[in-house]
Every structure is written in C-alpha cells, then in structure tokens.
Write a protein that binds this DNA or RNA. Structure first.
Ligand code: FES
Ligand code: FES
Lengths: 158, 158
DNA sequence: CTAATCAGTACTGTATTAGTTCTATTTGTG
DNA sequence: CACAAATAGAACTAATACAGTACTGATTAG
C-alpha cells in the first residue's frame, strides 16, 4: 500500500502541534512529551524540518522550534517532501534514474510524471492550517474527473 | 519519498501491455520477455491482478491473461490497490488500526482519511487507457485549489 | 497422455525504516 | 565566566518490508 514513512507521519503531527500555538517556539522535549513520541525521533524530525526551511530554530537555553511561515502556507506536500526527499512514486521517475534498464522499451515511462504530479497536487492541496483544526470544515478541493465506471474492486480509501 | 512497490510498478507496465492488444490474452512468459522482466515476478503479479478481478485468466496450453474490462474502465488506483492492498498512507488510517497508541490524544487522526482520499482520487483519475497511449494527450483532470503561496522548498514533482 | 500454463504458498537475501546514541555547537542565566 | 538547556549533525543497530525465487498442485489444448 502506498505509505509515507513514520517520520513524515510524525512530522505532520508535530507540525500541527506547532501550528496550534502559532509561531511560539516549543522545544523538542516538550513536543515529544505532549504527543508521547520518542524524543530522539522528534529531535531528528524537527532538525530536518528546520533544515528544509519550514521551521525556525532557536538554540540554547529557552530555545525551540517555531513555524517559519503561516500554517496556511505550509502544505502536507511540503512536510512530506522535506522528510522523505523529492516525491517520486517509482524509481523510474526519479531524476537520476540510473537504475531502470527497461526505459528504452517502456511505454509507461512518459506517464509516471503525470501520476506523480497528480499525487503531489493532492498533497499540496491540503494545508497545515486545515489539518490543525480538529474538524474538517471544507470539502476536498478536488475535481475527480468525469470518467465512466472504474468500479472499485480494489482498495477503497479508508 | 512516497513510493509504490515495484510490484505495483510492474503491474502497471504489464497492464498497459495487455491494454494495447485489447482483450487478446497473452501468457506470462510472453509478457515477461516483451518487457524484460523476471518471469517469476510477472507470474506473481498477474495472478494477483486476476484474483482482484482486473484480468481474466485462461489456464492450460495456449492460455494466458486478458483484460477483464475495457482499459478505459481500469484506473491506476485499481491496479495499485490490487497489488498493494487498500490504500492507507499511514498505519493510523487503516481499518484495523490496532497499532497506534497515540490516537486518543491525536488531533490529526481525523485528517488522514482526507489525505488518503485525495491521493486515491488522483490515482483514480488516471485510466489505463490514457497510460497505454504513448503520448499524454489530455491535461490533468485536477483542480489544484486556489491557495496562497506554498512555495516549494520541498520536493517538487519530478 | 503430455506439455503448457495458471494457482498458491513458502522461502530467502537485501534494502529500507525506525529508533538510538554520541559529540559538537549555540545561547540564555546566575 | 561557568553552567545548563537546547539544537546540529552524523553514525550506528535492530526490526521490518520488499524483491525475487522455488516448489507443488490444478487445469486444459492437442
Ligand atoms: S519501467 Fe522504468 S521507465 Fe518504464
Ligand atoms: S498518530 Fe496515529 S492516530 Fe494520530
């Protein structure tokens, strides 16, 4: 099943925590305790998010992390991308792409980028602000294309 | 990075092959050779797709696999779902959900299903027919939501 | 009957992930 | 200044998941 890593999962959880206090910095230890997450993990994740420019960090006593921009301007894609590297749903669609020996005679290769973009857009369309409110207020900004049947034998969304 | 397994990757490749011959069955061996994929893998994947009802299988000599419905009515989501199980981007959002001990004090949990749905819709909107034509004719059926900035420091789509 | 082909399951080596640990650096406070 | 509180960064380990293989059994055309 398509999964994000737990790092990204935690990342979103932590970001929502920070979004709720709006700019005020919190230390890694505080957040770990609040969310009952392992402290070393939290540290690692916050460091990565800071490196990616999504968080401001303040070192030293009384230091901590705070959002670098308003929650409305941070998307799920930003957070996941920061923690998992550039979005690429198959190895075939990465930039380096040294691996796939089959590309020469592959008719699908040209379509992977589209699939990536579709997913990226989906994640981009969900803002941290929306996620940090307990109730999902708005419906999805998604326009699911008027295709025919596509009856879902396969995995329905949960 | 958000990745589908290679099984699903190959699955899409194989399905496009079958889509191009429109209904005519091909044997696993034939497809494996055509695409230079390891035969045992191909066998495994086609079996799974047949179990999921996306392919018809014919046993015995001269047997093989053919699409169970028109390519236009099969989506990327169907194929991926068949090979990877129900789409669930985090363990928190699976049905069983026995794992996540943090759910009680988790404000994000209610949003995971939305993220899942967004991705699911994105995958659903791409049909096998579109994928089996070498040239991407239509633009994305996606309406990327009028949000403000979300400047992409993080992973841009590739 | 026999060969071709799918069905199903169990196994293994490898790669990735989850999580820890340690050292260095920065900075507020007494 | 000395110290404590915090982040920065990298290296390491154990568990898990994936990719690929192997084998046995069932079905069917010729
Ligand atoms: S299988 Fe890699 S480019 Fe198509
Ligand atoms: S972290 Fe699992 S439900 Fe929120």
């Amino acid at each position: 099943m398509i999964r994000i890593t737990r790092e990204a999962d935690y990342g979103i959880v932590l970001m929502t925590c920070l979004a709720r206090v709006d700019g005020q910095p919190r230390s890694a230890a505080t957040l770990a305790q609040q969310r009952h997450l392992p402290l070393p993990m939290v540290g690692k994740i916050l460091k990565a998010l800071a490196r990616a420019g999504l968080l401001n960090s303040q070192r030293g006593a009384q230091g901590g992390y705070g959002l670098a921009r308003p929650a409305a301007e941070i998307s799920a894609a930003d957070i996941i991308g920061a923690l998992e590297g550039p979005l690429a749903i198959t190895e075939c669609s990465t930039d380096m792409h040294d691996g796939c020996s089959r590309q020469d005679h592959c008719e699908v290769s040209s379509h992977w980028p589209r699939i990536n973009q579709a997913i990226y857009a989906a994640l981009q369309s969900i803002s941290l602000e929306e996620m940090s409110h307990p109730d999902p207020p708005r419906p999805l900004h998604f326009h699911p294309s008027q295709r025919t049947a596509t009856a879902g034998i396969a995995g329905r969304p949960v």
